[in-house]
Write a protein that binds this DNA or RNA. Structure first.
Lengths: 248, 248
DNA sequence: CGACACCTTGAATTACCTCAAGCCGAGTGG
DNA sequence: CCACTCGGCTTGAGGTAATTCAAGGTGTCG
């Protein structure tokens, strides 16, 4: 999914150039001037490639860095007290992993690559030192965190109010919008995650996810073939997502 | 609920003394030295009393301040696109309202008093200016935000994985723990919110909330009379909350 | 080729919802 | 003072959306 630059050569050791990065208009340092951007790029640590299934962050390990997804995608999972594993987020390029550990000593979630991916590592001490001198950067950091809070709140509404159909429609639209933000088509994309992951994220059984996909396809709202989705009728999906069949 | 200091005289105009406040060990400025605490107290703006039902923050209005609950309690609600109102959090003394708007221009949620309450207002510009000079304060702010992210994540797990019974048990235990943190009994407290509010928060119909309360009472796990709860069997509740009857 | 992970679809079950009725306490007004 | 309403709570009966259980299909990889 969204494999832009995934196949590019491993970036030069030492530094990444933010200027060259296709994500610069959406990434964390959004709003920095060219000179500031350069200083920001200078703190990026050893860019890391990860293969499908590899852990970027392991729950319970000490926090030291934030990570920006440069290419590929990730799922954020909590392994609940016992054994159950629960997906709390999916991360697309330019999104930031590790924010829930800022100000804490320990990561409360794991972050797992869903496909071959690259991340930019931002050591938090460097980031904080730099943001002392770049107010715009501090603002960007705050914004990232509060946006994540918003997202969680919308999710809370979705999970507690919405039928399975509505959850599914919202999920597809959310993915579509996030792809569109990054300059890709809102009408078609690859899902990097399994039906089980989607189910875990949306609070549905994986069978239900599968059935809903089929149902949507029968109604000509989407086509789906494996993990390749096309959204055929955005307005209808939006109608479903917004009021469609609210319970309660 | 938790009416400590609610009936005290309105604090002196101009400033609140954090030192005198019973919450100082849990509040945002946790970890500040006495001198730093004084500077922190100096930025607190016109302490506000609110009556039951009054809005502390209205969704859609510009962000300017954070608010710390000094006494009483609040619910945080999102009015969903259409008309439906959805409770996303309950706030107890020493907890901070408005964090989801830091770094944004506009509040995405409303905050409503559940009873007569007092808050300390922290103008964000002052807070930020001060935290430039007090690293401990900045850290505290980060910690608050990331803790809220954690809470949201636990909630996500609860809402998508748990049966109604488990949600209810978790809710009661969460309230109990938060009361205990503030020096009150973990075994008995007043619920300031209605059954409908609890249902909205937990993603259950209010009838279900009521039935569960009764069921728990029949099993001698709690007693409940109106909004006065006593937790009789914490271990059993914990068992329920942790694995009890997981679906999926 | 078999093993395995992933997905689809059907049938039966159930947890929770909706609808409905009734109770209680507080506030209001005749 | 009583009747009234109104909001909040409880409880029952019945319905249904989504689950669980189960079986079978497909693609990938060693």
């Amino acid at each position: 999914m969204t494999d832009h630059s995934a196949h590019q050569a491993s970036p030069p050791t030492g530094q990444l150039q933010c200027q060259g990065c296709s994500l610069c208009t959406h990434c964390l340092p959004l709003g920095l001037g060219p000179e500031e951007l350069k200083r920001f790029a200078a703190i990026i640590d050893r860019p890391r490639p990860l293969k499908r299934g590899e852990l970027l962050v392991r729950q319970g390990t000490p926090f030291s860095s934030l990570y920006v997804v440069r290419s590929g995608s990730f799922k954020q999972v909590v392994t609940d007290g016992g054994y159950r594993e629960h997906v709390t987020h999916f991360l697309l390029p330019s999104e930031v992993a590790g924010l829930d550990a800022v100000g804490e000593a320990i990561h409360a979630t794991s972050v797992v690559a869903l496909e071959s991916s690259f991340v930019c590592e931002l050591p938090f001490t460097s980031l904080e030192a730099l943001s002392d001198r770049l107010p715009a950067l501090r603002g960007a950091l705050y914004r990232c965190m509060s946006q994540e809070l918003h997202r969680d709140q919308r999710l809370h509404c979705l999970l507690s109010f919405a039928t399975a159909e509505r959850r599914m429609a919202s999920f597809l639209l959310d993915m579509s919008a996030r792809h569109a933000e990054r300059g890709y088509s809102p009408f078609g994309f690859q899902l990097a995650m399994s039906r089980a992951d989607i189910g875990s994220f949306l609070g549905l059984a994986l069978e239900t996810v599968s059935r809903l996909m089929s149902r949507f396809q029968r109604r000509r709202l989407i086509t789906i073939e494996g993990r390749e989705v096309s959204l055929l009728d955005l307005p209808a999906l939006e109608a479903l997502a917004e009021q469609g069949d609210t319970r309660r």
